[in-house]
Design a protein around this nucleic acid. Structure first.
Lengths: 234, 234
DNA sequence: CAGTGGTCTAGACCACATG
DNA sequence: ATGTGGTCTAGACCACTGT
């Protein structure tokens, strides 16, 4: 389609293969013809077939192994993706006006549970920052964050009264690895107060651990306001 | 590295580019040299450079546009991926033994909220299936599902006493599009009863809408047991 | 050992978006 | 109009892994 119409593109091949799988023509566990044969079938190069099958494998439809060949996955291990926008963008996308407020920021020794979670040595210093994010004055997120000072020494001079710790970290340590966990937690008195909820209310919660080349940078606990829903498109 | 050592592989290029970005050598918003120049720099073909940059773009580090070129993304719009395993696999991966139990299954007209959500016509028939998933006799998930009968007529003959509706759907309508939403909800009496929780307890909840070529197939509300955490690696 | 996918090269044409 | 990325070809060598 994109191409001059008479060539077979890798997208055409992807579609055709997907159609065969969906129709049951190529059932789960079936071994596909090898790349060379498919190249003949589709009158194209093996390179083109390779790209099509590689992408389908990455999308979770096929499993490929050298020598063993390519087979249709029986349990279509679908994947969902969601983006992690900056909170300001998220709020503005929803039509709100973003407002940030610092609650507290202080250096302290890492509590035991945090040291264990991040594999810190005993008593290592962390910056404990708590803050709020509002959407047009409605509480949107309460953020409870610890930053490992040894990993980001500049944090000692950082001023979080105007800029949020996440924005600051993105500027300072731009590219890192993230581990995310989602759960439903119960609002304790503190969280309930900040989010303007009754105590005990369910709160959608994210825990976010960030690493820079194997070193722990920060642990953040993000409590979302009432009615928050996280949606993903597959 | 994988290659015979003297050639430059696309993985080498990815690593090098990432290192430059991380080190601040190539700051956010910077325009990269074009593929031809990079090919010379890395002494390889443009094809190889193309693959490296294409993948980095897909991973969210770069933005590429024809004629405009390739630039470093300023707000590292990172993406998280998580897989959607079959619940049996998930439970067994956690070391439990999977057990399934049907609660109820009956055909009925779609309630208004469901008709609105799935864009059904008024009074369209749906199969309402409720069931439980246990991990070694501990409640793991309570599933409340509606299946659009017009979209999957075979559901009228399906027997959900032994096989769960999700497994059945996967077999029957294997490849579909999914829209997922996560939220924290409060256990009502029913959910609390099935999950063996106090009423009002926070429950991690997923809503899953499945489409087959634009047609709504099923809406499922999945309530997870106590302490459920969903973790993703980026 | 042998078959399969993984990757690279060298070159070409093209689609698209910007100036 | 033109430069940039998007893709395809034809051929080659290699890495991995099942038998």
């Amino acid at each position: 389609m994109t191409q001059s119409s008479d060539t077979t593109s890798y997208k055409d091949i992807k579609q055709t293969v997907l159609r065969r799988i969906r129709s049951g023509d190529w059932p789960p566990d079936m071994l596909l013809p090898n790349e060379q044969e498919l190249a003949v079938t589709f009158s194209c190069t093996r390179t083109t077939v390779n790209r099509a099958l590689r992408e389908l494998a990455e999308e979770g439809f096929l499993e490929r192994r050298r020598k063993a060949g390519t087979r249709v996955l029986s349990a279509p291990q679908r994947q969902a993706r969601f983006s992690i926008p900056l909170i300001r963008d998220e709020i503005e996308a929803l039509g709100g006006t973003y407002r940030y407020a610092l609650v507290s920021s202080e250096a302290q020794p890492a509590p035991d549970w945090l040291a264990a979670r991040l594999a810190l040595s005993a008593g290592q210093q962390v910056q404990h920052v708590r803050c709020m994010h509002y959407s047009t004055n409605t509480p949107f997120q309460y953020e409870d964050r610890w930053i490992v000072i040894d990993s980001v020494p500049q944090v000692a001079q950082a001023d979080f009264s105007e800029i949020g710790p996440n924005d600051w970290l993105v500027q300072t340590v731009p590219f890192t690895n993230v581990e995310l966990t989602f759960l439903a937690s119960r609002a304790d008195a503190t969280v309930a107060g900040f989010l303007d909820l009754p105590e005990g209310e369910p709160v959608f919660t994210a825990e976010r651990i960030t690493w820079l080349q194997g070193q722990p940078v920060t642990f953040a606990k993000l409590y979302f306001g009432a009615g928050y829903r996280m949606t993903t498109q597959v």
